[in-house]
Amino acid sequence: MTTIAVVSAGLSDPSSTRLLADRLGRAAAEALLADGTPAEVAHVELRPVAHEIIDAMLTGFAAPALATAVATVVEADAVVFVTPVFTAGVSGLAKSFLDVVDKDALADMPVLLGATGGTARHSLAIDHALRPVFAYLRAAVVPTGVFAATDDWGTEGDAAALEGRIRRAGADLAWAVRASRRVPQQADALPATPDFASMLGGLGH
């Protein structure tokens, strides 16, 4: 079974970022299934682990919820990564999560990028602010990124155009999965939060 980790860095609940991420993950899974490859989607919502991400940046240790999120991403066969855009850049939450993932953990990982924003003027953020980060991580990012502005969720025509972009991007990720040379990984991006009792070695008794 192929696993697609769908990462959403949306800050609100409900979130258009989560909605786009879900649709991209579903499109990729459907494209894989159409070619005879069963796929499942594993959702990773960053908002609930926001505090753990900051703590990990400060301490170097991952709390259990964050460790689980990182493991889901690192051990997947492909990743859909979607972030809101603020002031022409990706959200700090999205970048901070990538900062706590080991720099080699996503090498050759097939990745589909998406972003949401209030206006189409932010659409280039995928290429100038997000794609370079994944290039540094040596991920195999597919050419088609999907940006959804507020208007894309409105009229029937805009919604249909967005659906077309989602379908194309899903097909791109499915192709990248089939062509992937990635070796299965085990998550070791950050050590788990230490058990201080064991670190003291019984000195407290």
Rank of each mutant, 00 (worst) to 15 (best):
A31V: 04
T72S: 12
T150R: 14
V80P: 05
S123R: 15
A27E: 05
R138A: 08
D102M: 06
L66A: 03
Q185G: 02
L58P: 01
D172W: 05
L200R: 15
V142A: 02
H128T: 09
G157I: 02
A129S: 15
A67M: 07
D13L: 01
A189E: 08
T17F: 12
A192Y: 05
T87W: 09
A192R: 11
A42H: 02
T116L: 11
W153Y: 15
A148N: 00
P110F: 07
L200F: 14
S180N: 00
A105R: 07
A5D: 05
L124V: 12
Q185M: 11
D102W: 11
I53F: 14
L137G: 09
V142Q: 07
P110C: 06
V6H: 13
F147R: 00
D55E: 14
A176E: 06
A9H: 06
V111D: 05
D99H: 15
P132H: 10
A174Q: 03
A63H: 11
A71Y: 13
F147A: 01
A42K: 08
R131G: 10
T155W: 05
A88C: 00
A176T: 12
E45L: 10
A29W: 08
A125T: 14
R138G: 03
A39D: 00
A56Y: 13
S12E: 07
R23Y: 11
V141M: 06
H122S: 12
A69P: 02
A63S: 11
T87H: 14
T3Q: 13
Q185K: 04
A148D: 02
P38C: 07
L162R: 15
D55T: 15
F196M: 13
S12L: 02
H205S: 14
R181C: 00
M1D: 10
R181K: 04
R18M: 01
D158L: 10
L33I: 00
H51D: 11
P14Y: 01
A115L: 09
T68G: 14
A161P: 02
G25N: 03
A179W: 01
A179S: 09
R131Y: 09
P38Y: 12
I4M: 06
L106G: 13
A107F: 09
G202E: 13
T150I: 09
A148V: 00
G114S: 11
T155K: 03
V133R: 05
R26G: 04
R138N: 08
L19G: 08
H128F: 15
A31I: 01
A88M: 08
A76M: 06
L173E: 03
T68C: 10
A115S: 12
A179K: 08
D77N: 13
H205W: 06
G25T: 02
G201H: 14
P132F: 10
